[in-house]
Amino acid sequence: MTSLQDKLLALKQQGIKDIEKSADLKELNDIRVHLLGKKGPMTEILHGMRDLAKEERPAVGSFANKVRDNLTETLEQRKQELEAAKIEHQLAQEALDVTLPGTPVRSGAHHVIMQITETLEAIFLGMGFQVVSGYEVEEEKYNFEKLNIPKNHPARDMQDTFYINNDILMRTHMSPDEARELEKHDFSQGPLKMISPGRVYRRDTDDATHSHQFFQMEGQYIGKHVTMADLKGTLTFAMRKLFGADREIRFRPSYFPFTEPSVEVDISCFNCDGSGCEVCKQSGWIEVLGAGMTHPNVLKAAGVDPDVYGGFAFGLGIDRFAMLKYGINDIRQFYQNDVRFLRQFKQA
């Protein structure tokens, strides 16, 4: 072991110590320049090679190279360590409170009446019904006469009407659309299957349960072989889709001038499951639909032969459905458009 080798060894040991102690990339670079630079101790030591015997030189040279490699490697390793630490430090600095609220993105609510309407439309579209829409200001004949409700018919008691004049009125139900479609339909192209949702008007004083304006949907399926069993099947399917597959559906006799036989459809109360509660007025049942087999006089009034064609019609209150489904207790809320009301139905 020459003294040069001792020096190299000492240099290496001191160098590694310094490298490992370095705190940042700049200090590390200073160390590198100091150790391996042209005026550094390594160069100085290698200058001393000239004084060595010729045969000693290769061993010392090789040793010196090893020391240099060793130092270089250590420098590189430390550099990576320091760089990683630097990034880590930077990321730590950039950390956010992820629980702070996100920047608000505005989005609006679809009106609950329209949501129910579109849900119903989807159910009936799936069964091959078309969605039609008619007039809010109607001729009396389509609102009453053609629906088997002649003047002085007691059924007109059930509907207090806004008249424009003797012949023109605000439609009181969606049936005029049915009468018009029945008149228009070409039965050689197949049966008539339609629903018609829309705004209707009654001469009622507005309060929690009455509104002079509300929404209804009516529908009809008229063809050559449409039966009351089809009525039961179709409406059972639709009501289970809307109110749940586990609902009991009950059909019982009723009266509408435009159907015979007439049907009232109840579903088992979804609030109490039939045991009796506020929602169902302790009966266990909730009235959801009026329906029936289209009255022969209605078919005749539309120029359809009741001996050949027949079928069923049904109607429901969309406001009522929304009130039932969401426990809304004041019908006026639908038309006051309080945003605190509207926005509650954003998810539905």
């Binding site: 009936f124 579209l125 091959g128 069993a229 399917f237 059909f251």
Partner: peptide, 23 residues
């Protein structure tokens, strides 16, 4: 129908038709 009982009438779903489409 009513004396026979509405609840005793059969319930049938009309043969599947092509779905309706919105205009």
């Amino acid at each position: 129908a009513r004396i026979y009982g509405y609840e005793h009438l059969p319930a049938t779903l009309p043969a599947s038709a092509t779905p309706g489409v919105l205009t």
